[in-house]
Design a protein around this nucleic acid. Structure first.
Lengths: 211, 211
DNA sequence: GTCTATAACCAGATAGAC
DNA sequence: GTCTATCTGGTTATAGAC
């Protein structure tokens, strides 16, 4: 799965590669600072002064690059969701074998939510703070995520390789399992993102009765 | 003051049975109003005026019953977590059979998170807004939840009925799956809490390789 | 116990100098 | 583009009448 789309390749960590092609540099620093602050305190508890301070700027400088605090959240949410859909899609295209596709999708999606848990936390848990218009756009991206997962399961069932009585429900559960990693993952904990990815890929195969 | 209430039995719905024995009545109305407001907007975006207004009181009346807005969140969180631990524990004691115990625990825990998704959302997703002292108390209650789930899996493995390579990791995944229901559950959606409970109980049995 | 009124403070956002 | 200074409005919490 070569990543050559519009959004740059990524390395590990939460260092900010996601925003590598945002310019000018000040806007990038602000986005990075906002991700950290939103993840730590939540959108509403974060002040624009805090974001600007983390980026080494005055409160007013933020408004040169973003119209409002919500605009900052929207950019984070949009880029994060686009990345998330792309990661899941590409990971599900590694093979023709349904079990390999599912394992790859879950492993990769979980790894992303663990490695990028800071970004993922904002992306997955601060949606409600978006304006109605922005919220609707993000929900549309999420529908695509659900469709990808259902597609994998449907193909596995059609090929006689999965035993899944309720495809939409199981797809929901699988995505739910992956996404929730962002909530509880702790980089100082006993498990690495890779280990969690492997564990969850195995659990996913069991859930669909792969054989 | 308020809410030293032991816990009551519950009925269905999110109507407020959880707070049935909180007195005086004004404190109960405030707790109920706060749950709705926190679930809808999040703790930080909720104003004390909003809470008091929903309870049909003036902003100042809130401070007769609760020292601060955070105190209100703490009571909700504490009672919710105590209830949550108790529900999981009792559900896991229905039988001696590991598979029945796991299915009962997951079914019941999921149903609670769906039926009481409003309360559960606050209980599970607004922890960060608690003061450090209160946060620590709640984390301790959460550790007990984890211990209950691990106990079920260990017993199943010891009895030779479950095939679980990583008990703590799988326990984490199972709880994660249940808890995340509170995030996405929609009472107007196609699935009832009972249906989701059944689906998830089945998925849980598959995850542990029950036989 | 609840109300009205208000204190004390802090947020998001803007103006204008450099 | 960034800064300092400030505006405007909303926030938690309190005082004192009833």
């Amino acid at each position: 799965m070569a990543a050559d789309a519009a959004e740059t390749t990524d390395a590990g960590g939460d260092g900010g590669e996601t925003w590598a092609d945002v310019s000018p540099e000040a806007a990038r620093r602000l986005l990075l600072a906002a991700v950290d602050a939103f993840a730590e305190r939540g959108f509403h508890a974060t002040t624009t002064r805090d974001i600007a301070g983390r980026a080494g700027m005055s409160p007013a400088a933020l408004y040169i690059h973003f119209r409002t605090k919500e605009e900052l959240l929207y950019q984070i949410s949009r880029v994060g969701h686009e990345r998330s859909v792309r990661i899941l899609t590409e990971a599900s295209e590694v093979s023709e074998d349904p079990a390999e596709r599912l394992a790859s999708a879950v492993r990769t999606f979980v790894r992303w939510h663990a490695e990028r848990h800071t970004t993922a936390r904002v992306v997955q848990y601060e949606l409600n703070a978006l304006s109605p218009e922005h919220h609707e756009q993000i929900v549309e991206l999420r529908r695509r995520t659900g469709a990808v997962m259902r597609g994998i399961l449907e193909d596995g069932v059609a090929a006689g390789r999965f035993a899944v009585p309720d495809v939409p429900g199981t797809a929901l559960a699988l995505l739910s399992l992956c996404i929730d990693v962002a909530r509880w993952f702790n980089p100082d904990g006993p498990r690495s993102p890779e280990q969690i990815g492997e564990l969850y890929a195995d659990l996913a195969l069991r859930m669909v009765g792969a054989h």
